[in-house]
Amino acid sequence: MLSMQNISMVYRTDTVETHALRQFNLDVGEGEFVAITGPSGSGKTTFLNIAGLLEKFTSGRYELDGKDVSSLSDAATSRVRNEKIGFVFQGFNLIPDLNVFDNVDVPLRYRGFNGAERKQRIERVLDMVGLASRQKHLPAQLSGGQQQRVAIARALAGEPRFLLADEPTGNLDSQMAMSIMELIQEINRGGTTIIMVTHDPTLANLAGRNVHIRDGRVSDSDADTQLAEVAVG
């Protein structure tokens, strides 16, 4: 599903070179639920940006769904993001001036679906996240948990092959966080591949596999979710 080989990412200024990822290797299989953990500055966000095709990397090879995506044009990259990847952001990233329906509609319009198809998809995913009755609400009229559910609905409406979640519960209290995690697990059980970046060991434990990043490299990876053994720091 996702294969990164020797990915390096170097940020350069006139005087400084920062190696955000060094010879980074990772393979994620179809239907996996992988948690990415690591301390601040370890390269988690850079990995997420590259995995989600939000940023170009300096060197290496990245295959997504069996295709090399390292040399795609900007428009082609946008299309891959739209069709194959769903994003869930820590801060929800809902558009404050659009109501719930229109927020979920955003990626579907870029996909070019007709009105009827979009409506059917939006209603289905909002029903799935339990917000079917809040279609006309603005984000500001929803709780944090509800906003993240809208963001998840938006990510799922296009039926992506995999979901990238960046600290999806980072701005939520523990009760809401667990509720969101249950929803993400349920999505994974439905067959969607999920990569979740998190600081929280408890949440990482809920993933099928945990990958720990340190200094831009995979420092440890397990398949049995024993996060304690790859303890942070």
Binding site: L54, S78, I95, Y110
Partner: peptide
């Protein structure tokens, strides 16, 4: 700016 970045992440092209 953040909203634009989000739209781009969700699949908007530069032209969009």
């Amino acid at each position: 700016t953040k909203q634009i970045g989000t739209r781009r992440a969700l699949g908007a092209t530069r032209a969009d």
